[in-house]
Amino acid sequence: MSEEQIRSLERQFDEKIARDEKIEPKDWMPEKYRQTHIRQMSQHAHSEIVGMLPEGNWITRAPSLRRKVALLAKVQDEAGHGLYLYSATETLGISREEMYEQLHTGKAKYSSIFNYPTLTWADMGAIGWLVDGAAIINQVPLCNTSYGPYARAMIRVCKEESFHQRQGFEIMLKLANGTPEQKEMAQDALNRWWWPSLMMLGPTDDKSVHTEQSMKWKLKRKTNDELRQQFIDQTVPQADILGLTIPDPDLKWNEERQSYDFGEINWDEFWQVVKGHGPMNKERMKARVGAWERGEWVRDAAMAHAEKKQARKEKQAV
């Protein structure tokens, strides 16, 4: 294809997206669109899968049957969300094995929030309330993104996600209204998860390298800073209902902006965790790679069994 032809195809492609038409797997797309989507969608899938680990840690120690079934269902949803997203990404021409390989070798990233440890039961509350809360803010606009398979997967994810946040808030509410020790445990969890949750919405706009292109492709509808402000404005009143204090001395309602002003985020910490130096990075990868390697004989046996059954069926048919 000549350069001129490509430019013309790109122009038609951009116009199509501007008209809010969806792009489907077999449609022509610029190579950069394909690569950017593979990167973002696979990282999204990896985050769902790695995100099971901090919570899986508490399933056996949930304080009641009600809490246990809810946590199990939530973790199972996360496995499901990872699978929707992996198969949506495969429509762009990358195999599942390649994606796993990228995760396991550290080439692909996942949300840095999952590199923090879950130390107490209250962390299950804080994760549902804050981490899923921030994730929902990030994900809802993606239901309208330009790549059809991604948008469809996100509609399913968002529909299922809202129970995650509500069950987290319920855990926090119960602890906040419990004994002084329980309330302290809830406050401690909020103290530890608040700032990482703000970081989860991504670097500030002036440091975010992909924003402009992603906005054009509707991979992003709002900037990181806008999303972060939205998250803070909706979460602060929820903390008030819990009677807990957000660990930010600079947090203050700004009458003029009709929004909360907030303190400086420790971006050094964020980049440290992204680069692999968070408290749990090594642990998470060890668990993922270990599960993959220990499962290999099961995958091979299932395939051998399927082939044997198929061969027997064919023999009978003759």
């Binding site: 269902a73 199972q76 949803d77 499901g80 699978l83 929707y84 198969s87 949506a88 495969e90 599942r96 469809r152 997967a153 299922e160 995958r299 299932a302 395939m303 069994h305 399927a306 059954k309 198929q310």
Partner: peptide, 22 residues
């Protein structure tokens, strides 16, 4: 959507868990 499975029976079982949890 889609998923990976060794054979059609496993695909059915996995589809139940992945796509019909609710």
């Amino acid at each position: 959507g889609s998923l990976h499975a060794a054979d059609s029976e496993m695909a059915l079982e996995n589809a139940r868990d992945v796509y019909t949890r609710r």
